[in-house]
Nucleic acid binder design. Structure first.
Length: 252
DNA sequence: ATGGCTTCATAGTGAAGA
């Protein structure tokens, strides 16, 4: 079973790229973030014609998440049940017996922004909810744009980024808190190339210079056996790419 | 260089992303 996650930075702009990626990679599940699409305008039939089912939860301009799957997505949940939030950042469903949790974790803007405590509160609610969810669903995968680079090796310039948003100690502690629930970073279960990232700044030729961060992750509960995990840089090389590229993992 | 690009909403510029 192949699971993947991709922050597409507007599904409208990236729809053809998503359809091509589905056709070429044949994932069983693809989680999307930053669809930036109201549900009424969601390109459902186009994805159905590609042979997939979709559940989604979006809004105008910002945020928006979706789960694209070959098999039906059951018991769909929208949002964090323990955190009142107007922003559409979470959708969860069971696919082929695996609880799929698709998240677009807040960016935080900067450590002295009002959005930073919102991010930390959001992460605390996520962890509290997942603790219960793992009891209900031992086979659970948490996929998405975490907006956290967990370690210095996930950052192209750890000195410049030290203490900054996406790399700060409270954010990294929140990431470790998820791991303490028994969730494992699928990417780090395997040998990986150094300087592997999932996001590169649009500006200053960030991708060409590999000025990136690894902030998109797949965390897997211990009941799931993972056989491979990789970042697919190919979509980042296309015309008009998202600033993020897909991450995928294979389950036994 | 508190910048740079890209998207969206809008109709000239501003917010937000990371």
């Amino acid at each position: 079973m192949k699971l993947a996650t991709w922050n597409v930075n507007s599904l409208k702009v990236r729809l053809e790229q998503v359809k091509n990626w589905l056709a070429e990679n044949q994932p069983d599940v693809l989680c999307l973030q930053e669809t930036k699409t109201e549900d009424a305008n969601f390109p459902l039939s186009e994805l159905q014609q590609a042979g997939y089912q979709v559940v989604y939860c979006g809004q105008k301009t910002y945020n928006g998440v979706a789960i694209i799957s070959k098999l039906p997505a059951l018991d769909v949940q929208y949002g964090l049940p323990n955190f009142e939030d107007q922003q559409k950042r979470v959708i969860a469903a069971t696919v082929n017996g695996v609880r799929i949790v698709c998240v677009y974790i807040p960016n935080g803007e900067s450590v002295d922004s009002d959005k930073y405590p919102y991010k930390l509160a959001w992460l605390a609610a996520l962890q509290a909810w997942l603790k219960d969810e793992l009891q209900l669903y031992p086979k659970l995968a948490l996929l998405g744009d975490y907006n956290i680079a967990p370690e210095d090796r996930d950052v192209h310039d750890p000195v410049a980024w030290a203490g900054k948003v996406l790399c700060s100690e409270p954010e990294r502690s929140a990431f470790m808190g998820l791991q303490k629930l028994g969730l494992r970073d699928a990417f780090r279960l395997f040998e990986q190339a150094e300087k592997s990232y999932s996001w590169w700044d649009y500006r200053m030729m960030g991708f060409r210079r590999n000025h990136g961060l690894r902030i998109d992750h797949i965390l897997l509960s211990s009941a799931l056996e993972c056989t491979a995990c990789s970042i697919d840089k190919a979509p980042r090389k296309l015309e008009r790419p998202s600033d993020h590229t897909p991450v995928w993992a294979n389950l036994a």
